[in-house]
């Protein structure tokens, strides 16, 4: 998936010279005459090769200044260019929260539609690296709460490339969440540029017995659990929303009306979260279709811990998802 993300940025920059990429370590040494081969190219390597192709004006390393990076992205986007900013980890975005919430999200509205704010903030998310409290958050629910912001959560390499190209072309601020445990996922993707629309969920498995909505890495986990359950004769329908704002409520509601049962899997704390939001939306609009209460499988209401046994307890796993599915099926 990492390569798909890099390819999307490369192709967006080829197609539109107003697309610029900057952030901490996105060049990673090569800007100062160091050999290209050793250049860091982003914390995970997604931006490797961009500097060599597009040069120092459009691909820039930055100091560690999250508020400044996003503030400048907002002003630059409102002035006619398309910044793609590498925020490194979502846990670092609260340093720029004012710029995201009070500036990026609100400019178009406050100014009566005058402002276009076409910027993308890319960031890694997720527990599982032993990176503890200040590197492992998911945070997409926090930003889904904010009117004016769009939130994208790719799960597959195909979607990552298509959604990132779509996000860069979008005229609104997009926060693009890349789960670091998905970076090594392998899948052939088309070489040519293509887009995947925002607000369009992907039904990754069809089934009539229960609907499982999984966000980001949890969509992959949900699919694995569904395959296990199939051997027990339980046919689960798995939905990957792909974007949380906008959210494809139609696909989720349609599926629940068919299966009458819903489990939402989300690697985030449970309060005021996307899992809570989807559960509420389904209760509001498809209550009569439900044969059992909606179940949520989430992280606990806690920061992400370091110690492996604790971290494993934090991240929703297959056993918890399976048990929730069996619960809504009264098994």
């Amino acid at each position: 998936m990492l390569q798909a993300v890099g390819e999307a940025m490369f192709q967006a920059m080829e197609a539109d010279e107003t697309v610029v990429v900057y952030g901490e370590d996105v060049v990673g040494g090569a800007g100062l005459g160091e050999p290209y081969e050793g250049a860091m190219g982003g914390t995970f390597g997604a931006t490797r090769g961009l500097f060599r192709r597009f040069g120092a004006s459009r691909v820039r390393d930055t100091p560690i200044s999250e508020a400044g990076l996003v503030g400048i992205a907002v002003g630059a986007a409102a002035s006619g260019i398309r910044p793609v900013v590498d925020m490194m980890w979502s846990s670092f975005t609260p340093l720029a929260f004012d710029q995201i919430h009070n500036q990026a999200a609100k400019l178009r509205y406050m100014f009566g539609g005058q402002a276009n704010v076409p910027l993308v903030l890319r960031m890694a998310i997720g527990a599982g690296l032993g990176a503890a409290g200040q590197h492992s958050d998911t945070l997409y629910s926090v930003y889904t709460h904010l009117p004016g912001i769009k939130v994208v959560v790719p799960t597959t390499p195909y979607d990552a490339k298509g959604l990132l190209l779509e996000s860069i072309a979008d005229d609104d601020p997009v926060l693009f969440f890349e789960h670091m445990r998905l970076y090594n996922t392998r899948q052939e993707v088309p070489e040519d540029p293509y887009t995947v629309p925002l607000g369009s969920a992907s039904v990754t498995r069809t089934g009539a017995d229960v609907t499982i909505v999984g966000v980001s890495y949890m969509a992959k986990l949900a699919l694995e659990v569904a395959d296990t359950l199939a051997s027990d004769g339980i046919e689960a329908e798995v939905i990957d929303p792909r974007s949380l704002s906008p959210l494809d409520t139609e696909t989720i509601l349609g599926s629940v009306c068919k299966t009458s049962r819903l489990v939402v899997v989300d690697e985030s704390p449970p309060r005021c979260s996307i899992a809570a939001d989807i559960a509420a939306m389904v209760s509001e609009h498809a209550f009569d279709a439900l044969a059992a209460p909606v179940r949520r499988v989430t992280s606990p209401h806690s920061p992400v811990p370091l110690s492996p046994p604790l971290e494993n307890a934090y991240i929703p796993d297959a056993a918890r998802v399976e048990s929730a599915v069996r619960a809504v099926l009264n098994q």
């Binding site: 107003t18 508020a67 400044g68 503030g71 400048i72 992205a73 002003g75 630059a76 006619g80 500036q103």
Partner: peptide, 20 residues
């Protein structure tokens, strides 16, 4: 209305001028 809110915006505007 955010005190200091103009600062990032104007700096970003200057960045856009430079890139263009």
């Amino acid at each position: 209305a955010i005190v200091g809110g103009s600062i990032g915006l104007a700096t970003g505007g200057a960045f856009a001028h430079q890139v263009k």
